[in-house]
Structures are given as structure tokens and as C-alpha cells.
Write a protein that binds this DNA or RNA. Sequence first.
DNA 1: ATTTATGCAAACTATTTGCATTGCC
DNA 2: GGCAATGCAAATAGTTTGCATAAAT
Lengths: 130, 130
Amino acid sequence: MRQTIQYQIIQDTIQKMHGHPTAEDVYQEIHKEYPNISKATVYRNLHQLADNKKINQVLIPDSPERFDTILPKHYHFKCKKCGDIFDVNIDYLSEINDTVQNAYGFQIDDHDIIFKGICPKCQNGKELQH
Amino acid sequence: MRQTIQYQIIQDTIQKMHGHPTAEDVYQEIHKEYPNISKATVYRNLHQLADNKKINQVLIPDSPERFDTILPKHYHFKCKKCGDIFDVNIDYLSEINDTVQNAYGFQIDDHDIIFKGICPKCQNGKELQH
DNA sequence: ATTTATGCAAACTATTTGCATTGCC
DNA sequence: GGCAATGCAAATAGTTTGCATAAAT
């Protein structure tokens, strides 16, 4: 694995970004300062970073792939109105892995939880529907 | 909402299908008997059926959209090797909705859980990697 | 008769890939 | 110098959309 300038820029940029950016978000951010970077390189390096456990890929319904720089296990919430993604830091439910493993014979490595509902802003009608 | 032949065929076909078919799967199945059906119609009616709560849309990582004819709330498991999706019928964790609602002020309607690991077949090396 | 849903093709979105070239090691 | 990674453009996969036509009400 080669130490390229692009890999470094992509790693540094996503580390500075907040929330759960898509590959496109990361590309746009880098493109401001390095207009020659290729979107394919951004995709390739984001996947590389995920494989190397430097970032996480987050599963979000009806969304292009998103990445997360927060490594400790946590869950996510998606607002049905504005579409925003929020981190949910309740305790990781490791016991349900065991429950499912025992009930079904699957070897369970992990699980994701996505909560769905309305965020406080949208409850107050302050946001337009996406 | 009009009662079209296509809507009926699509509803009947997916009800007969097992597992978690994609729109393409449903299209292929119908296409055998009704080669004139349009893929756009299949997409439109599957979404219609989901809106009407006749079927559920299931969220699966790295997969085209999938549908589920089993309506009671349940979870899913995806095998990392063969890619198969399995239903997971452990108790629905309604209490975590309250936990998150109280902690974050979100109005939580529901949550999905996707378990990830290796299914029994693949543990025995009987399946090729997808 | 009206008007919604269909079929088809084209458009679109997100992502991946082939390949000539660049630039790490 | 060799070979992996880049940039670009084209290809692909999945889904949606515009529009003329067909069919449900």
C-alpha cells in the first residue's frame, strides 16, 4: 500500500468533516483546494480507509454511501423529514448478538441499528421536507 | 388509486415469492408469464404496495432495494460470505425507542437492526464468496 | 369523457472499471 | 525501473421520469 498525496489529503479532509459525509461531499470539499483530484480516487481511497479501519462506512436508508470518522460502535438516527443523520450513543447491545447466534447458529460479528422518526427541529416545523 | 391488472399481478407474485426479492427479481418472475410488463411499472407498484403497507421495504447494506412480504416487525441478518438475507425473529426492542427518544428528543417511530456475520452454511465452507 | 397508470426509452444517480500515465518505493 | 495509484472517460447498476397511448372509472 503506497503512501500517496491523495490518500493523505482524503484522510485529512474527512477527519476534519463533521457528520456523515458521502463520497461526493468529500470530493467537493477537496475539490475546492485541489481541483485536479479525481472522484474515482476519492471513492477508491475512502474504501481503502474503511478497509484499514480508519473510518467507518455507515448504512443509511435511501442514501448514497456515507462515512463516519467516529470509530467506537454507535447507532444512527435518520429524520424522515429533513433527512439528517444523527449519532445515537446508547450502550451497544452485545447481548442480542449472542441471542441471535444461539437461536440461529449464525456467527454474528456485529449489528447496526437505524432509528427512524422526526428530529426536534422538524417537530417544530422549522425544517422543510426533503 | 386505480385497480389495474398489473398492480394485482405484482401483488400476487411478490406474495408468492420467498425471501427478500429485489424489484429485478419480481420483474423477472412476472416477465416469464407476462413478457410485456414494464420494469417501471414493477418499480412503481412495489413502491405503491409499500406505501399501502401491503409489503415492507427492507434496508440491506450494499444491495438494491429489497421487499419483504412478512409484515410483523422483525430484524434481518446478512451473511458476509454468501450475501444471503435471513429473517431474525427475536423480540422487538421497543424500549430502546423510548431510551433514544428521552435522551435525544427525537420522535422515534421505529428502528431497524441488521446483523452481520457468517451463516451456518458458509461456516462450513459450503458456499462460495459473493 | 376523464384521467390515472402503463410501456417504452431516455435520463439520472451513484459507483466502478479500463487504460494510458504518473509518481512512489 | 517496476509496479501500484491516479485521472479521465466510459461503463455499469439501480432507479426514476417524460410522454404518448391504453385502460380504469
